[in-house]
């Protein structure tokens, strides 16, 4: 076995691990683990509607930024 195989496998597994770590760090920064109870239970209500709702909120914020947002 050539030593480059060791190097490649080590590199690949470290990259995989680092990706998972990066996702975890992103989660912490995003406040996803701030509320342990919500984290566990809110999963039940996570469907397409929630995603749309989130997108709407994002739109509202952006619209407001551009000063185009007019509440009816």
């Amino acid at each position: 076995m050539d030593s480059w195989v060791v190097a490649m496998m080590l590199g690949a597994s470290l990259v995989l691990g680092a990706t998972a770590l990066a996702a975890f760090l992103w989660g912490i920064k995003n406040g996803q683990f701030d509320d342990e109870k919500k984290m566990m239970s809110q999963v039940h209500f996570d469907d397409e509607k929630e995603l749309n709702d989130l997108a709407d909120q994002q739109k509202k914020r952006e619209a407001l930024k551009k000063k185009e947002y007019k509440p009816e």
Binding site: D34, D35, E36, K37, K38, S41, Q42, H44, F45, D53, D56, Q57, K60, R61, L64, P71, E72
Partner: peptide, 27 residues
């Protein structure tokens, strides 16, 4: 009382014009 209450409050507030974000901590 429950996770659904959190959901309901957030939803109801999000539906209001002018509310940009409502984040309720369940704990």
């Amino acid at each position: 009382h429950c996770a659904a209450c959190v959901w309901l409050n957030e939803k109801a507030l999000h539906k209001m014009d002018g509310v940009i974000e409502a984040n309720i901590n369940y704990t």
